[in-house]
Design a binder for these strands. Structure first.
Lengths: 237, 237
DNA sequence: CGGTTTTGTTAACGGCTTGTTACGCTTTGT
DNA sequence: ACAAAGCGTAACAAGCCGTTAACAAAACCG
């Protein structure tokens, strides 16, 4: 059975091109030029994957991505971004895109990514349920109760900011998160040039985790790039 | 093994320039002045990448691009375009090329793009599992924790710059890395003509590894070319 | 409503990392 | 042999970050 792909892009030429190219490679293709058309197409035929342009007139691609994610948590999304944009934020944290591709792109690469995403989605036929706790290095972050549990089972209260920060780290282990990304998680805005609040929050989080900044076992500093959680994370549900 | 690049351009001076420049940077270069010569060259030796001028007498570059694509779907193509054209749309919509560069261009930028394209192509070919650690000569570079482990198991902290430098070396053992490449790894920018910062960082890394510059056992200097890690590297996962 | 506690932000100081410059040695070319 | 270029090293300057303290804003609570 052919997989169904919904393409959301405002450029008619690109839509036609993708329709032909993907259609010629064994996919059933639906087209939409904006958010409204997307919703209509979603209602008409549930796609197996959505290709979403980040830059859309009217509703922003990111907003649509969030809406899709809220509606269909297991629906794979591939975002198209203009070259040079800050792609980190999209792939990044809770945005929810499964992959992204900068424009202009090579159709073979698009095809490869589509197949890769669909393969992954097939493997996790049951997409990972949202975890209830993230466990790492003896600690466990309870996402429901929003507190930490130590190795000995002791509950450690944690501030809201520390929780959001730690959740972002634990959901992206071994990945360097920039100050901009962390600021986005913490306050929903970009970090100013002399903004040190992220550093202070990281300091407090480290203190909470008994992590020494000079020899950090958990939260590593990557100079001039950001911070990273260096620990295996197990998702518990 | 050197990568083979085929250059298709009708300007003899540009052909000679690229032959010298790319040849001097470790590529095997073939030249063609038009579509017929291109086909001949393709038959003689399969290149790893084609640089194609958009404006050619006789057969159009775009037509050649499509022909190449039909013939060798996985062959990377880089297009050269005249300034002022709407290159975004050409490449984005026609989507045959992997990248494009407007003329006149900076040879360094061309080189960077070539390497970027070849890197991507290589990744797609063999998606090697990312290693956890790179071990060489008694040392082990922990890629997750971003630190060094000595022969006796002692953890040696390492600065971010030293880490990135050593990772670049350990992922390319017995290969000379130019200052430009190392500068790209370290700072993501080009090295200025009198830039010695790479040398200084190599000096610091050598000190960290107990390597004497006069008789280097690990990081060899290759005069006027760059540096090289002369040790077997084992990828551990 | 007023006071208290918690949380987030800003400022300042100091240490560490990185970039820059200079000097001297070695190699290379003439 | 000389000059020029490449490189190792040290010293210095600038930038980044850890930490603390103080302050402001928000939440909490009686």
């Amino acid at each position: 059975m052919d997989k169904r792909i919904l393409i959301v892009d405002d450029d008619p030429e690109l839509r036609a091109l993708l329709r032909d190219y993907l259609g010629g490679n064994g996919f059933a293709v639906d087209l939409a030029e904006d958010g409204a058309a997307m919703r209509k197409a979603m209602a008409a035929a549930a796609p197996d994957l959505v290709i979403l342009d980040l830059m859309l007139p009217g509703e922003d691609g990111l907003a649509l991505c969030r809406a899709l994610r809220a509606e269909s948590p297991s629906l794979p999304i591939l975002m198209l971004t203009a070259r040079g944009e800050d792609t980190d934020r999209i792939v990044g944290l809770e945005m929810g895109a499964d992959d992204y591709l900068p424009k202009p792109f090579n159709p073979r690469e698009l095809l490869a990514r589509i197949r890769s995403i669909l393969r992954r989605a097939g493997e996790n036929a049951v997409r990972e349920a949202p975890a209830r706790a993230l466990a790492f290095a003896g600690w466990s972050l309870d996402l429901g109760a929003r507190h930490l549990v130590g190795a000995d089972g002791v509950v450690v209260p944690i501030s809201n900011g520390e929780f959001k920060l730690l959740r972002a780290f634990a959901e992206n282990p071994f990945r360097v998160l920039s100050r901009d990304q962390l600021m986005d998680v913490l306050a929903g805005r970009e970090a100013g040039p002399f903004d040190r609040s992220v550093d202070v929050m990281v300091h407090r989080l480290r203190r909470r985790l008994d992590d020494d900044a000079r020899e950090p076992a958990l939260i590593k500093t990557v100079r001039s790039e950001g911070y990273m959680l260096a620990a295996e994370v197990e998702r518990k549900s």
